[in-house]
Design a protein around this nucleic acid. Sequence first.
DNA 1: CTGAAAGCGCTAACAA
DNA 2: TTGTTAGCGCTTTCAG
Lengths: 357, 357
Amino acid sequence: MTTITDVARAAGVSPATVSRVFNGGRVTAERAERVRRAAADLGFAPNRVAQSLRKQRGSVIGLLIPDIENPFFTSLARGVEDAAQQTNLSVVLCNTDEDVDKERRYLGIALAEQMAGVIVAAASRTRTDLSPLAARGMPVVAVDRRPRAAPVDAVLVDNQHGGEAATEHLLRAGYRRIACITGPEGASTSEERLAGYRDVLRDAVRDGTLAPDGVADPLRAYARYADFKVEGGRAAMADLLAMDEPPDAVFVANNLMTVGALEVLSEAGRTPPGFGILSFGGVPWAPLVRPSLTTVELPSYDLGFTAAGLLQERIAGSAKPLQTVVLRTELRVRDSTAGPQRLPPTPAGPAAGATPV
Amino acid sequence: MTTITDVARAAGVSPATVSRVFNGGRVTAERAERVRRAAADLGFAPNRVAQSLRKQRGSVIGLLIPDIENPFFTSLARGVEDAAQQTNLSVVLCNTDEDVDKERRYLGIALAEQMAGVIVAAASRTRTDLSPLAARGMPVVAVDRRPRAAPVDAVLVDNQHGGEAATEHLLRAGYRRIACITGPEGASTSEERLAGYRDVLRDAVRDGTLAPDGVADPLRAYARYADFKVEGGRAAMADLLAMDEPPDAVFVANNLMTVGALEVLSEAGRTPPGFGILSFGGVPWAPLVRPSLTTVELPSYDLGFTAAGLLQERIAGSAKPLQTVVLRTELRVRDSTAGPQRLPPTPAGPAAGATPV
DNA sequence: CTGAAAGCGCTAACAA
DNA sequence: TTGTTAGCGCTTTCAG
């Protein structure tokens, strides 16, 4: 390994000068050039470990996400990477697997590795503990999920609004027994999406739009907590279908659970849009689903991009008051919510596929 | 930040003793206990940057993958993580985006951060350059794709066999004009899968099973290089369908391109299994695709798990000769290749969904 | 078994 | 502008 000292010797200068050349210190052009040439000749690259130790701060930022297999988070990660690309910070991804212990380990590593900062989509609203980082002055930005009472910047999605838009759309499409499958109890994303759903239903009951027959408390009867995973979506959907008076539409609070719900619906022969289904969060393979899926689109990429921007400001030393940025969702209406009375749109034509060869 | 010296002072021992306690050195039980207690009291955690600098080796392993949005690679990453979990190595993920320059940057960082080792799914067979790592003695394991002539351990998939199994299955199902959409020219995975396809077709022509009508050289006419992405699958499929004598089935060499191909087929009204389609590599959302998709399943998780195991042996200092582990694929037959003359299986029943509410 | 001391590669005072 | 020097926190000889 060639060190700064080797370069210094080769260029006939002191190590400090070499350091200055690489860190924007004042060095005469001629000497700087000599140093650069020597460095190139020797294939010198600064040892980032030594830099980190000396500066008490590294040059990587940690991105902690709860589920690397969820396209929402991988898209978010792209946003972070692209934003970080513009500086010389590099991003490392840590998969916490919705597990608070794993998450704690990674947070410890972030500290021990003296990372420049951390972006975290918290595994738990209450049990994720960001205070050790705060205590050591490490910049932190929360994305997607805001841990309770942590003194950090945050970039969130307007979940309540998204939940409202989704539920309103289902109502307007003519569904009357609208269910909601949301995430884990206590998670901010779960609760906010559910709250949007409930508010709209409550208003609808109040103004007479909605007068459900025979269900005591529609606001609670059709709501289910699940786990944001495929299996949770399956279970909740099966549970809903088994009711005496099952729903005729469902608002599913994330993309993975939608997959599970669709599987169950398909097995039960309840094809959309006869049974309405609306997914909070799009999926890359959505184009393959027939009928096409109505979704609330989330700005996953921008979430990451924005968070990385905020973090870099903090790393650069910004002392602005803490801020929370809320990004808006967008309802994208497709065929899976065309209304309870409609038949699914005719598929493009199995007949063609069956043409004799 | 509390350091080893603080702990030493609190426990009334020397820093060296504290270090020994945390690194399995010989220390009397009584003193060790005192040190441990002091460390706990002070909330001491060793500074990994200082450790790395001193030991000239860090405790993170880098995992370089070309596409973080491909479920194949995220699953592989899970395998790596799980295997690494068993030691105290932590994994950081770097997304090279199929871009050799980005990949080079990350390899440089791996070096500069003194990572313990690197697992890499190379962005290019010819242009990925692993020699700087080799030169500095950093352990490297190639997964999925083997860079040309690099002196490293490798964990690969039996692509050729998978390609053969896929093509044989399509032939046996009765398809006669079988196309292949493979990845970028020159990539080992592309070429090997294509080779499997070609070998089987060649044999079929030779022994008379296959006597294509009107196509000069079926082995080439129906093969397309693409980019392993959705868009590439779309383009290649559209190109194939536009032929004078279009194929009646296609073997698509990765999961993402299958999505694109399915979209085009659907738009063209060529529904499987009338038009046969077989995907190399499964997809998590496969259950939603109707008719269900025949796939060659890849051991993505095990690929990662095995690679991490190998890497850890090297990190521990194993001097075994270089080895290449080849993992087997498995054909999973479903409905999308049921044969050219069959109609798609009746869907579970739109009638039920259309029941008046 | 334990402690003293050196030094990993780099940067930031400080002096010149 | 440049060089000298000290030291970031840790591990590892080397003596004892």
